[in-house]
């Protein structure tokens, strides 16, 4: 059994960064990644000291069992996942998300979400056991980019980074995104809440996040334990 964890924080420069995962030890790695990446970006005269969140909270869902590996993500789970992340993404600039949330197989879940929410940059990570720890075998980080908006000159690029579940990989991902955003800003590739209204909304609070997470856990429960079919006697 495991829990979903959602952590949302406001960085020292005001950016909103969030994490959603079913691996509980990722939270610490996420925090460490941010603290190192923002060491010299927090506007203070202490470049050697780790950065701190302006504000942050964490929510844990109820326990649930991971769904066994299938050929593809069940439609109900995919739908539930999309609804959950769309709700959690309000105002979030960077989302760290498990590649396969709530299921055992290494199946993609975030592609629809990444297409729908172009004002947010995504960092996807898989379970440690799936990626393996040998640096000779797999790369540390692989980054792709897609145009943020179909309108205009398509200067701004949305980051889609796949990385290992490590603090150093998370740190590199944040660095890459922050640097790219600064570059885009210089060239006129700004984030536009007139196109993506969700990015201008305030981030979700702790209570609402708790409800949303548990709603998805219910979907996982019902998919993993379908209600028994009515027998003849039950019907009577």
């Amino acid at each position: 059994m495991t829990n979903l964890v959602f952590r949302s924080g406001i960085a020292s420069d005001g950016r909103k960064i969030a994490l959603i995962s079913d691996q509980l030890d990722v939270e610490e790695k996420f925090d460490n990644g941010y603290k190192i990446a923002y060491k010299d970006k927090d506007g203070k005269d202490t470049p050697e000291l780790l950065a701190k969140w302006k504000e942050a909270f964490t929510v844990h869902s109820r326990e649930f069992a991971m769904l066994p590996c299938g050929d593809s993500v069940p439609a109900t789970i995919q739908q539930g996942f999309n609804t959950m992340v769309s709700s959690l993404l309000k105002g979030i600039d960077i989302l760290f998300c498990d590649y396969n949330l709530g299921i055992e197989g290494d199946l993609p879940m975030c592609n629809d979400i990444m297409d729908m929410h172009r004002s947010t940059d995504f960092v996807l990570f898989s379970c440690d056991s799936l990626v393996g720890g040998d640096p000779k075998v797999q790369p540390h980080t692989v980054a792709y980019s897609a145009p943020r908006y179909e309108q205009g000159q398509q200067i701004a690029q949305q980051h889609r980074i796949y990385c290992k579940t490590e603090a150093s990989a998370f740190c590199q991902a944040i660095n890459a995104i922050v640097t790219q955003r600064a570059k885009d800003n210089m060239n006129g590739g700004h984030i536009r809440d007139d196109i993506d209204s969700y990015i201008g909304e305030p981030p979700i609070d702790k209570e609402a996040a708790d409800q949303i997470l548990n709603r998805f856990v219910e979907t996982l429960h019902s998919e993993g334990n379908p209600p028994p079919a009515l027998t003849h006697q039950d019907a009577e």
Partner: peptide
């Protein structure tokens, strides 16, 4: 369609589905 019957358009995970070596 993703994960459908069209082979060349399925999503992959670059960390786990590609043999970089």
């Amino acid at each position: 369609v993703c994960q459908g019957d069209t082979v060349t358009r399925c999503y992959y995970n670059p960390l786990t589905d590609i043999d970089w070596q």
